[in-house]
Every structure is written in C-alpha cells, then in structure tokens.
Write a protein that binds this DNA or RNA. Structure first.
Lengths: 161, 161
DNA sequence: ACTAATTTTTAGGTATGCCTAAATTATATT
DNA sequence: AATATAATTTAGGCATACCTAAAAATTAGT
C-alpha cells in the first residue's frame, strides 16, 4: 500500500470520532489492518505535531489544527469523487481515486474542479453536453445539432426552467 | 519530496535516452538532484526487475518492458495535463499535478479523461459550454441562453462546420 | 478485590530510499 | 603510457513506516 499521510489519519480520526471519542489505537488498527503498535507510534507523532491530543492508554482526539485538515481533506475528497462520477467513473473507483488524488493535487486544480462540479450540478440531470459526452464515450460518435430554440439548448437544461 | 516510483524513473530514462544512450547515473542524479550513488542503487533494482539493461560503469538503456511502461506513463501524463489545461489550470501546475496523479489514477478514470479530452478537442476553440464554464469561473454567473439556430448552438461549435 | 482477559505500549527488527565518504574504474592530458 | 581528473560504485548510515514478541496497564467477571 501507498505510504499513508497525516491527512489519511486525521480524516479517519475525524470519522471515527463521530461514533466514539476518544479514538483508540485498536480502532484505527482494525480499520487499516495494521498493527496496534504501529498506531501507537503514529499517535505519538501526530500528538507531537499538534494534530491530536493523545495520552498513553487514553486514545486520541483531534485538535483544532487536526480537525481543520480533516475537514479540508474530506472536502477535497468529496469534490474529486463528485467530479469523477460526473465523468462516468464507477462509484467505487471514484472513491478510491479520490482518496489517492486528494493528497497530491494542487489547490488551483481543486478550485477549478470545485467550480466545474458546481457548474455541472447547476443543471438538473446534468447539462445536455454531458449526455453528448456519454453518448460519445459509448459510441465514439458525436451527436449532430438539431436545435432551433432555447428550450432545447443542449447547454441550458437549466434548473430554473 | 514524494517517493519516486519505477514509472518516474523509466519515464525520465526514456526522455534522456533520446539525446544520449546509454544513460549514466550522473545524468539522472543531476536532473533529480540526488546523489549518483543513489542512482546506482536504483539502476541495480531496475535492472533486477527487468526494466533496464545495466552494467557497472556502463549506464542504462530501457528494455522493451521498461519502454512500454515509459510510453504508457507519458501518455497518461499528457492526457492529464491536457485535461487540466482545458479546465483552466496553469501550464506549470497542470504539469506538476499530472506528474503526481499519473502514478495513482485508475485505468478507468484515465479512459474517461482521455475520451473527455478528445470530446472537448473536437471543437475548435473548445465547445461553447467551456466558454460558459470559464465565464462562470470568473464571475460566478451563468450565461442565459439566447440561441435560435444550430449555428449558434453552444455545444456544436464544430470543427467540421 | 482478585484474577483473567483485553488493550496498549515498549523494544527491537526489516525494507526502502535516500545520504556521505572512501574506494574503484574510466577518461583525458601530457 | 603515466598520471590527474572525473565518473561510478561500495560500504555504512539515517529516517520512516511498518512489523513481532513481550511487558505493562486497563477492564471485566466472579
């Protein structure tokens, strides 16, 4: 498996915290299928770096700093996944790819993708060009334009219409 | 820096090979700003795993297996970069992000992105909805539809027109 | 409250991907 | 061809992210 990042851990901590706080080494270990002893080391490091509050045998809770990163990372994940699903990537793969890409992507790219998702979701059922893309993806053919009025505009299948 | 993958090395080898073959440890070391001694180790590993032909003091050349991966990786890189540029990401950032994403992305996602880039590039100057997206990105506003005929169809600003 | 079972930590180990310093080989100059 | 210089490899080191086994602390059953 790819080297796990701080982001991975605070994200997971954030999710587990919702059910039970504080989160113990075993909770993480069982989810990630790693040894509890390894989690202890990770907790010590995250604690040192100010992402969690951790005391021996006491489990961990995210600090503000940690929570901030967790939320930001989850937001990135969510946007990436939404974007990939728009493109037609399967749920599971979208989720896995989002999980990997979220740790490496530049803020500018995230901003563009965020706006793109917003732009697409503005149209109920997606904009018409997206249907055309899907048709193209399946068949390799481009749909010829047959429109004559606004109502059929392939761009403006607009929520407010 | 992120851990470099086999893909990184064969890709670089592929590029350097074009100028001068075989590629020596120093060539790689100076590009990546790492120690030549480290490159020796990497060459030994790549040689063991069949990606390059390497002999002590003799430099390295890609095997077929290595070249195949290099080409596939470069193709992924190219598609990712094109896609990001379509979205409006700056050249440099597009390049850097492509370089990171290419190593983690699922084949299915690559396929969707490849088709998407093809789909967009089919229109000279890009499809009209892309202008609309850029407008939306800049202003936060959606352009209202004012079309009445095919010629102005925002989707079909078609190369063959 | 005592003992058993469970959880957690400590101590020590492995593989990887880099490093530096020193040794070795190859190349260039004369 | 001998020697100086440059390139390359070897040997040994460091940090990280995991591991196992054993010790220590906590929790649960009676």
């Amino acid at each position: 498996m790819r080297k796990r990042t701080i982001e991975d851990y605070v994200e997971l901590l954030y999710d587990l915290q919702k059910n039970k706080k504080p989160v113990h080494t075993n909770d993480i270990a069982s989810v990630l299928n790693i040894n509890p002893a390894s989690v202890t080391e990770i907790f010590q490091k995250l604690n040192n770096d100010g992402y969690i509050n951790y005391e021996k045998y006491g489990g961990a809770t995210l600090t503000q700093k940690g929570e901030k990163i967790a939320i930001a990372t989850k937001k990135k994940h969510d946007t990436l996944k939404k974007f990939l699903k728009i493109l037609g990537v399967d749920e599971k793969i979208a989720d896995m790819d989002a999980c990997k890409i979220e740790h490496v992507v530049d803020p500018m790219t995230m901003e563009k993708l965020t706006k793109f998702v917003e732009f697409v979701q503005r149209f109920k059922g997606g904009p018409r060009w997206l249907d055309h893309f899907k048709y193209f993806y399946e068949t390799g053919k481009y749909i010829e334009c047959t429109l004559i009025d606004t109502a059929k505009c392939p761009f403006h299948r607009h929520k407010s219409q």
